[in-house]
Design a protein around this nucleic acid. Sequence first.
DNA 1: GCCGTTTTCGGCCCGACTGTTTTCAGTCG
Length: 562
Amino acid sequence: MKNKELALIFEKIADALEFQGENPFKIIAYRKAARILNDLTEDIAVIHQKAALREIPGIGEGIAKKIDEYLTTGRMKKYDEVTAHIPDRVLELMAIPNLGPKTVSLVYKELGVQNLADLRKVIEDGSLAQLPGMGEKKAQNILKGIERYEASRERIPLGDAFPLGMEVVNALKQLKDVEQVSPAGSLRRLKETIGDIDILVASERGGAIIEKFTHLPEVVQVLAQGDTKGSVVMSGGLQVDVRVVPRDCYGAALQYFTGSKAHNIKLRYMARERGLKISEYGVFKGEKKLAGKTEEEVYKMVGLPYIPPELREDRGEIEAAKEGTLPSLVQKEDIRGDLHVHSKYSDGSASIREIAEEARRMGYEYVAICDHSKSVRYAGGMPEKKLLKQMDEIARLNEELTDFTVLSGVEVDILQDGSLDYPDEILEKLDIVVAAIHTGFKQKCTERMIRAMENPHVDVIAHPTGRLISSREGYDIDIHAVMEKAAETHTALEINSYYDRLDLNDVNAKSARELGVKLSLGTDAHHPHQLWMLQLGLGVARRGWAERKDILNTLPTSTLKK
DNA sequence: GCCGTTTTCGGCCCGACTGTTTTCAGTCG
């Protein structure tokens, strides 16, 4: 698929145009095209073949032509032109905080700065500070920006940011004069990776709260501290921003700081059409403030129902809200169990009883034990005999438990030829069969998965794309073909909720749902204290517009078994 | 570059902060 490739090209064109001081709206158009391509699950080449490029909102004549050119010839003249006279590393400098396109362009033209090393040099020898509009303070700010850039170039997985964010939220809740606290930004939208943690506080005493915040024990560096905003680096290198607003702006501010940027831009455009203005302080008609205390009010002023944070990505939610077709998203209370947990029988570290106890404590009705099958040696895959023994233990445990069910399952390997790691006689005895690829990521993965789904005993495909957020691209796979087969064979696709997987991801989950595929939430936990991660998978499901009926594990035990 | 029951041309989201400025440019979120 060339989707990501094209997205990268448009992103680079945007960078180059920004560097050259082009019309900002043109730049926005290229960035938007890049975002759309990144979010697309369908192969852009297929859309191109159907001559349907122009039907995608945000893709107009110019960009459609460029996509066509690239797919037909493998080159894009525009890209070659705009990048021709800019050294490769220069554009990367724009990613440094406090350093934007104007300054990069200036130091390049005036001082010949072409890379990070050059930049450091002109700061140290003072020549940057001499440039028009520059000064010593600006130079020092850029230097700080370089430090931050080098310290945390990467976004971190939601699963790392989430517990830390909640810790800070809880610490702030304890403070005097704090009326309301909420995560904001990408953390509140439960995006799979987080750049920095944003937290919003309602209070009339901002200064005191920010003061306390910047002195939390985990803080290693204070980046900014004022009456309304504080910004710190926590141990581990993650940046946390806290903003304090008066209570009558809290809703507007929460809406504003939750984003996404694209969602907010569209919303404010709608406000303009109605002669209104939306800012973090409220909704205004001229000088007059019309709303701001709650998010609901803000949406209402532009004629929309409340839109849950997870949907706010400008992926059609505003249009759906207008038409009254927003999904009624699956909720935490709807989830009745975890459908993918490992025990000591393979590479997990807890007994089945311990897992069951923790799952019950969490309010679940069931948990599915799905240990590895025999071929997965490195993960302690079970020979048939061991699996039978496990089934036995589960049966005995279930006799003992009155209000809880342990489901006997397996994570059976899909072998190189697409056959399964256990014979059908074994698989048919199990409550749930989850099939997965663990080896041969480049070997005909699509065909293998399709063949696995043709086996009537396979209920779920685990981590269907195989990606790891922090380290791995995933299988060489046509996920769209897999989804279509899943719909045809009534196989569920997993939203693996382990923090580094989140696989399917949000956009794939949305496509799957649109094709009528059921989704299965499982943590892939190897220890009971990882069961909380189902919240992350639930976030992905909600970001994928999933309703209760789309999720396998909203079913009660008896229906699920059937 | 995109888009259209106010437009095929002329718009395109909004405010804060900082540092360099005599009224504003650049950067950020």
